[in-house]
């Protein structure tokens, strides 16, 4: 079953940081990694994230579970870009039939893989420590996003565990009716489409009922809303954001000074 419950110690410094400050930090670090095509910038950012990890309060089990996929994705990107690089310059490291790996391609491939790791690690640290309710509160209070869209989305997200449990029930009910995927990929795809349709019909019905329940409690009254939970940008949150910006800038500066920096355009 799927849930959004944060997988961290709630009193850890990063877990207690204002969600907008965290969002800003994740955007700053990820975007810097995204714009740099060299190997040093993402490596420095990854080091910074490693330093930040103990302060996030994310427990080791969930962290490794999530990072397992991350490293796999990073490795995939690295290998694909290395093996299938269009321009193969530099010393030849391996040649096996059509397969050819060169030093330059390997370095570039590793660099691209590292970027994936930076984006993913930043995402895990930022979002695994954030409760969706707190994020929605901060979005409406600090960024002044539309409460209707923000709270509407939040209310829908509450249905995630319900809908994921429903997926299982629908699949089970299909077996009872004599419908099963088995090994045949075509049958599996048909079963998947049929299950998805039933899930969506149920989801639409729920959406109608949820919207009615929200309107009945005055959600669409057009009046100004107050906030039961106050989110603030405290000095520590500003400091946190500034640190994230500084780390991102520093990674680029070091990389430029070292002469490796390359902008991805």
């Amino acid at each position: 079953m799927l849930t959004f419950a944060p997988v961290c110690d709630r009193d850890a410094p990063i877990a207690r940081t204002n969600p907008i400050a965290k969002l800003f930090a994740v955007v700053a670090v990820s975007t810097t990694a995204l714009l740099a095509a060299d190997w040093l910038t993402p490596l420095l950012l990854l080091a910074a994230l490693a330093v930040a990890t103990p302060f996030s309060g994310v427990r080791l089990g969930p962290l490794t579970r999530r990072l397992r996929w991350l490293w796999f994705a990073g490795a995939t990107v690295a290998v694909v870009n290395t093996v299938f690089a269009a321009e193969k310059t530099g010393a030849e490291l391996l040649s096996f039939g059509p397969l050819e790996i060169t030093a330059d391609a390997l370095v570039d491939g590793m660099a691209l893989g590292l970027r994936v790791c930076v984006a993913a690690t930043a995402g895990v640290l930022g979002f695994a420590t954030t409760d969706p309710t707190d994020l929605a509160d901060a979005l409406t209070q600090q960024l002044r996003t539309s409460p209707r869209f923000t709270i509407g989305s939040l209310a829908a997200m509450r249905l995630l565990p319900l809908l994921s449990a429903e997926w299982q029930q629908i699949t089970t009910a299909r077996r009872a009716r004599g419908m099963e995927g088995g090994r045949n990929p075509l049958r599996r795809a048909r079963l998947f489409a049929s299950t998805m349709f039933t899930l969506l019909v149920g989801a639409m019905r729920r959406a109608g009922r949820l919207a009615a329940a929200m309107d009945a409690r005055g959600f669409d009254s057009g009046a100004r809303r107050t906030h039961a939970r106050i989110q603030r940008m405290r000095p520590a949150d500003w400091l946190f954001s500034a640190c994230a910006a500084a780390v991102s800038a520093a990674a680029v500066v070091v990389s430029v000074a070292y002469g490796t920096f390359r902008l991805l355009v």
């Binding site: 997926w167 998805m196 959600f219």
Partner: peptide, 17 residues
């Protein structure tokens, strides 16, 4: 509200899909 919630619930349902 119905439009907003419908889009949002569809997004969540596709998260499951």
């Amino acid at each position: 509200t119905l439009d907003i919630v419908t889009c949002a619930v569809l997004a969540v349902a596709f998260g499951v899909v």
